[in-house]
Design a protein around this nucleic acid. Structure first.
Length: 828
RNA sequence: GCCUGGGUGGUGGAAUUAGGUAGACACAAGGGACUUAAAAUCCCUUGCACCUUGUGUGCGUGCGGGUUCGAUUCCCGCCCCAGGCACCA
């Protein structure tokens, strides 16, 4: 055995062994309990970064731990391989997105192997493979049949730099999530997935996911944004129809003094036609539409508007209400029109002040006698309260009045109670090349025609010239876009938009259960065995995007008959970022640590150990070069412990407990305490940092015992038991060194196939235990008592303690509190 | 503004699950041993203050109160930091 710990050769040896013997390949086995562990698959951007290393290390520990505990563990890996960076890189480097992508995959797969992760590589998936996305195209067709995929024209988020449309979820405070370009609104024909069809289930099920972090669920709840209210109709004064609004405050209807419409509202042009205001309105609408989405949405713009020249009638007061176009009203929420109640809505208040519109108070705070006076209002009173100046409803409380007023109008056909959501349908068309083609054809005669199932996949052509401006080459690639209509056989044009890459990642976890299936998307039996994912691990940044889309997609697949679960991920762990010098690692900050360099210098086990030890998984991890050194030092120390004593250790008898000296009994107790602690820390809370600390304590104690018990005949059996415990329980975290040490100690069976150790409760028991003695709540002494001492005995021993005596003096005892096996507090 | 986390030594972090020794484990720092020397390794010290230097006293977990024999942990009121949402009617 080498005296010095040299990770390079050991790690290579075991990685090759794991690869060659295919130990991580798994199959369905009804006789064993399954455990599906999944980490979010990476985009093949070129190289693995530290965030990946951390994510995948955490997952690997859990996978190996569960495997040793006897579960049939599915632990797959693949590539989220479609996406824009491939196109950009290809244009820049004069290569092809496919080549760039597959080259990156090869490099990164090799990096993952060097980290020793326990993946079943036979299940590897790349989403850009037609053998994968053909099934996605099939899902699309089925969704089209059932109305879950549809095409419509609407205002969409457009990023001019990326030359493509973005989903709402991909717009972050008005900017493109990838390149920070301000997003503009553009009217386009787009394909949508009807995620709103599942809005109630998506929201309600957030209450049935106890294994998810609270904050992720809250983010999804906020994103879905259910609000209950009323839909009201305001008749136009001209008698020419009415305007529909959504409001959560029907109780304030008597204070509604005007209406505000979004610039895109379809009635705007009719309302101002032929009026003196027409030119001004059209000009305002024009400017409003052009304003950037971020300015318009972030509330930065001053409230502005213009009178359309038309009036509505307030159905309760009968008063005339001027109809305005206002820059703060969003077409995309509710009906694109709001009733304005300036006394009780701050936005309407500001608007009314600016344009000198009436402010009618209709709510007073509950409990106070006087309603605030109109002229005195300096801001809107937005709370609930008691209705005033509201006809027959005066005196009611807001909550009851909302329903009463709506019901009263409903009798005249002017209102209904309704629920409104912030969530909108998912626009999935992307004007990009490197994505899965949408299997649709446009025929002049037949219109929109789906590609027949038998003609799938619609293969993305590889022989394209990428365009310098970044736009998709598909619309100018005749062999692709030119098609025959499946219905009439005539000339037709293929859809040249591709799907949002979030579609691929919405179902890959299901495909891992049967990646080789070539006559169908999902094998019902295999999916049933493995799904749902028992533990999913990934970054918090996908709290809404990927995790919401996947939940939606699983419901779709369930309803079109592909799987039986309602939710994809039973438990979710969101790990924190990797930080260095106070910032997230990034090229622009220049604080990137390259995993390759670290593996080269210290080996994979050191890198893994540091990632696990420096912080609990859900917190951000502060990268520290010295911390890495420390991890390496610990592994070297462990190595030396074995290599310096290898012969004595190998010939040591099996430890059975029995009569041991105090030091050795203590070590044995520590050994079993450590097994217990590590088991519970990993199983219950994924707190690897404290598990490792416990192992370090045990190692420290072994070194201590060497000093104190050199000549004790029982030394080696006890030490061997301790050391083997260290090796076994550390092996999910640092698998290479442990496997090597295990072998060096003479074991023939793989450590990987060794069952997780059980602690011996008898070994945990001590004959004497330490009791802390407090006087008036302050620590004054420690005493050692027999483990089975009664409260009375503990009290007697404490009171006999000279230090305790000193503090008590001759004062009488007022109270004595004994906490079993821990502490006694004597109150005087 | 709303929602969710969080605030503990010089640093990362323990202890928060049922209230019971605050600072485990590590990093950094300082001292010592080994060595011609260095590296590596091993040992010791390390929350703050004070003194009579001892299982010493006092203080100490963002701040102020409360409950309790006892509060980092529970309750009330504040402050600060991070993340998410935000003109959503």
């Amino acid at each position: 055995m080498e005296q010095k710990y040299s990770p390079k050769s050991i790690e290579k040896k075991w990685q090759q062994y794991w690869d060659n013997s295919r130990v991580f390949e798994v199959h369905e086995d009804g006789s064993r309990e399954k455990y599906y562990l999944l980490e979010m698959f990476p985009y093949p951007s070129g190289r693995i970064h530290m965030g990946h290393v951390r994510n995948y290390t955490i997952g690997d520990v859990v996978a190996r731990f569960m495997r040793m505990r006897g579960y049939n563990v599915l632990h797959p890996m693949g590539w989220d391989a479609f996406g824009m960076p491939a196109e950009n890189a290809a244009i820049k480097a004069g290569t092809h997105p496919a080549k760039w992508t597959y080259d990156n995959i090869d490099y990164m797969r090799n990096q993952l192997k060097q980290l020793g992760f326990s993946y079943d590589w036979s299940r590897e998936i790349a989403t850009c493979d037609p053998a994968y996305y053909r099934w996605e195209q099939l899902f699309f067709l089925k969704m089209y049949d059932s109305g879950l995929a549809y095409r419509k024209s609407s205002y969409v988020n457009w990023c001019s730099k990326c030359q493509t449309v973005l989903a709402n979820e991909q717009v972050e405070s008005g900017l493109c999530w990838r390149c920070d370009t301000p997003v503009v609104q553009k009217e386009m024909e787009q394909w949508f997935f009807r995620i709103t069809h599942y809005v109630d289930e998506l929201l309600d099920n957030t209450l049935k996911l106890p294994g998810w972090p609270e904050r992720v669920l809250v983010m999804q709840q906020n994103w879905i944004g259910r609000s209950t209210g009323s839909r009201l109709l305001f008749p136009l004064e001209s008698g020419d129809g009415n305007i529909q609004v959504f409001t959560t405050r029907a109780d304030t209807l008597f204070g509604a003094t005007f209406l505000s419409l979004a610039a895109e509202h379809p009635k705007v042009s009719d309302l101002c036609r032929g009026k003196p205001e027409e030119a001004a309105v059209l000009d305002f609408v024009q400017r409003a539409k052009q304003s950037k989405r971020n300015e318009r949405e972030a509330g930065m713009l001053e409230k502005e508007g213009v009178f359309t020249g038309s009036y509505c009638i307030n159905p309760q007061t009968g008063k005339k209400m001027p109809v305005y176009v206002a820059n703060f009203v969003l077409m995309a929420y509710g009906t694109g029109a709001v009733m304005a109640v300036p006394a009780h809505d701050q936005r309407d208040f500001e608007f009314a002040k600016k344009y000198d519109l009436p402010i009618d108070v209709v709510i007073k705070p509950a409990g106070s006698a006087q309603p605030p006076l109109t002229g005195d209002l300096t801001r809107a009173y937005e709370e609930d309260g008691i209705l005033v100046a509201s006809g027959e409803f005066t005196g009611m409380e807001s909550e009851a009045a909302r329903i009463a007023i709506t019901e009263s109008l409903a009798k005249r056909g002017l209102a209904e109670l309704t629920v409104q959501h912030r969530l909108r349908d998912w626009g999935i068309s992307r004007q990009r090349y490197w994505g899965a083609p949408i299997p649709m054809v446009y025929c002049e005669k037949c219109g929109i025609v789906p590609v027949p199932e038998k003609d799938l996949p619609v293969v993305l052509p590889l022989d394209v010239e990428l365009l310098e401006n970044g736009g998709s080459p598909l619309p100018v690639h005749k062999p692709f876009y030119s098609a025959k209509c499946p219905q009439c056989g005539g000339e037709a044009r293929r859809e040249t938009d591709t799907m949002d890459t979030f579609v691929e990642s919405s179902w890959y976890f299901a495909r891992y259960t049967c990646p080789d299936l070539d006559n169908g998307a999902l094998d019902k039996e295999r999916v049933k065995y493995w799904m749902p994912v028992d533990q999913y691990i990934g970054g918090i940044e996908h709290a809404v995007l990927h995790l919401l889309y996947s939940r939606f997609f699983v419901k779709v697949l369930r309803d079109i008959g592909y799987l039986e679960v309602d939710e994809p991920f039973k438990n979710l762990l969101t790990q924190g970022m990797v930080i260095k010098d106070g910032f997230k690692m990034s090229k622009s900050k220049g604080n990137v640590v390259d995993p390759d360099d670290m593996i080269q210098t210290y080996g994979a086990d050191t890198v893994r150990l540091f990632c696990l030890f420096a912080a609990p998984p859900e917190k951000d991890l502060d990268w520290s070069d010295q911390g890495v050194e420390g991890s390496f030092r610990f592994l070297s120390r462990l190595w030396r412990l074995v290599s310096d004593n290898i012969e004595a250790m190998k010939s040591a008898a099996v430890c059975e407990g029995g009569n041991l000296s105090a030091d050795l009994a203590a070590l044995r107790r520590k050994t079993h305490q450590t097994i217990k602690k590590v088991t519970e820390d990993i199983r219950e809370r994924f707190h690897f940092n404290t598990a490792i600390a416990a192992v370090m304590e045990l190692v420290n104690q072994i070194y201590q015992v060497f000093e104190n018990c050199k000549d004790d005949p029982m030394l080696w059996p006890v030490v061997r038991e301790a050391l083997e415990a260290v090796i076994v329980v550390s092996s999910p975290m640092v698998p290479h060194i442990c496997e090597e040490l295990w072998q060096a100690l003479g074991h023939e069976k793989l450590l990987l196939d060794t069952p997780w150790p059980k602690w011996d409760d008898r070994a945990l028991k001590a004959e004497e235990i330490l009791i802390v003695v407090q006087v008036n709540g302050k620590l004054r002494s420690r005493i050692s008592v027999p483990a089975d001492a009664t409260d009375k005995e503990i009290e007697e021993i404490s009171l006999a303690d000279p230090r305790v005596r000193e503090f008590i003096g001759d004062k009488p005892l007022r109270k004595v509190v004994v906490v079993p096996k821990k502490l006694i507090n004597i109150v005087i």
